[in-house]
Each structure stands twice: as C-alpha cells, then as structure tokens.
Amino acid sequence: MASDTDTTKTETVYCHNCGEQIDAAAELCPHCGVRQRPPPSAVDDKRLVAALLAILLGSFGAHKFYLGRTKVGILYLLFFWTGLPGLVGIVEGALYLSKSREEFEAKYAERDR
C-alpha cells in the first residue's frame, strides 16, 4: 500500500522584471518587489470596458478617462460638440477590440500617465 504523500505541486512562473522563479499567484515578486502583471481576464475585462466606453461615450472621452489619459479626455470634452470625438471614439473602440490581449496590455494597461 502506497503512502499518502502530498504530491501537489504549486504552479510557478518567472518574474517579468528580475527573472526569478515565483509562485504563479504572487502579486509581488519576493525578490525584487515588482508588481506582476494582472491576470489575463483582468486585462480582457479592461479592454472590453474601454472599447464599449469608446463606442458608446467616445464623444465625451469616457474611454480616455478610464485608461488614465485625463488630458486627452479633457480635449475630447472640449470638442464633443463637433461630433469628431464621437467618430474617433468608434474607430478607437474597434481598434481596442481588434488588438490582442498582449498588445492592449503593452500599450494601455501598464501606462502610468
């Protein structure tokens, strides 16, 4: 009869900053202290919300405020009466949806502006 030993392994990944092996569920790297990327579903959710805001409320720059680009959002608000930000918002919404998760994350999700 085999002994009941705990053979469950914890899933590990590599830190995207220092390259050390860390637990996959770790929010911060214990070696360098850098916050790890959000899980894919969080990025996908952010991409979908940004796209819907761009399509539905693009005239007012809601998607720009959501993505942390406040100055551009204010510019959209200043010119909303022309209708041009609404057209640009529809195009940007389609672009957000057409980007892969990695492309969206690199361009918008990790931006600190």
Rank of each mutant, 00 (worst) to 15 (best):
L57P: 05
A24N: 07
C15E: 05
F60G: 12
L78N: 04
L78Y: 05
Y14L: 11
I74P: 03
A24G: 01
D45W: 05
L53T: 00
C18I: 10
E11I: 13
V49T: 15
F79A: 12
V72E: 15
G19I: 10
C18G: 07
K9N: 07
H63D: 01
G33R: 11
T5R: 15
A62C: 05
V43I: 14
A50H: 02
F79C: 13
L48F: 11
D6H: 11
L48E: 12
D23E: 13
F65V: 10
A25Q: 10
G58F: 03
N17R: 14
L78E: 02
Y14V: 12
V13N: 04
V49I: 15
I22Y: 03
Y76I: 00
D44A: 07
D6M: 07
E11N: 05
H31L: 00
V34A: 08
A42T: 08
F80V: 14
L52Q: 12
C29G: 06
K9C: 01
A54Q: 10
D23F: 03
A42V: 09
L78H: 05
Q36L: 10
G68W: 08
A51N: 01
C32Q: 06
G33D: 09
S59H: 03
Y76L: 02
L77M: 14
A62N: 07
L57R: 10
R69C: 01
R69S: 08
I22P: 01
G68C: 05
D6C: 11
V34P: 00
V49S: 00
A50M: 00
L75A: 15
L67H: 04
K9A: 12
Y14N: 15
L52N: 13
E20C: 08
A42Q: 15
L78T: 14
Y14D: 13
A54I: 10
D45K: 15
H31W: 01
Q21P: 00
R37M: 13
Q36T: 03
L48H: 13
V49D: 01
P30N: 11
R37K: 15
K71E: 07
L56Y: 12
G73E: 12
R35S: 04
H63T: 03
R37F: 09
K64C: 06
H31N: 08
H16N: 02
L53P: 00
L48S: 09
T10E: 15
Q36W: 02
T5G: 03
R37D: 14
F80L: 11
F80R: 11
Y14G: 07
H63P: 06
S41Q: 13
V43R: 09
A50W: 01
Y66M: 08
V49K: 13
Q36Y: 03
K46Q: 05
T8D: 09
A62K: 01
L28Q: 07
C18A: 12
G33V: 00
F79S: 09
R69M: 10
L56N: 13
K9Q: 14
L53W: 13
L28V: 06
E20L: 04
A42M: 11
C29I: 05
L77T: 08
C32N: 06
A25P: 00
Q36E: 02
D23H: 04
T7C: 04
L78A: 13
R35Y: 02
D45N: 10
